[in-house]
């Protein structure tokens, strides 16, 4: 399942997509949890009883601001969460 967490507003579309099929057996040892400087990820048990990563509820409506420091303007050339997730389960829409 691809879970899109985020929103669209007047300034654009801000979604973090997590491919939970790649997430169930994590080859990266849940590296996303520590990679995000804001600790935006958590491991949840989804409706199919799979342990998968998700964006914490409190960040889902402010991704444009919360992720800003990891975007190029913040000095990063690659996103820490995307780099840490070696199976390639995490993607940003913007």
């Amino acid at each position: 399942m691809i879970a899109n967490y985020g929103y669209k507003d007047g300034s654009g579309e801000y979604y973090i997509s997590i491919d939970t099929d790649k997430c169930i057996v994590c080859e990266a040892g849940r590296a996303c949890l520590g990679a995000c400087p804001k600790g935006m990820f958590e491991i949840i048990s989804d409706d199919y009883d799979d342990e998968v990563a998700a964006v914490k509820q409190q960040f889902r409506r402010s991704l444009a601001f919360d992720c800003a420091q990891c975007k190029p303007a913040g000095g990063y050339t690659t996103l820490p969460c995307v780099s840490a997730c070696t199976p390639g389960a995490i993607k940003h829409s913007w």
């Binding site: 399942m1 691809i2 899109n4 967490y5 985020g6 929103y7 669209k8 507003d9 409706d47 889902r60």
Partner: peptide, 10 residues
């Protein structure tokens, strides 16, 4: 079974 989903959290 859900394959893909998107909502608007905001």
């Amino acid at each position: 079974k859900v394959v893909d989903f998107a909502g608007n959290e905001k």
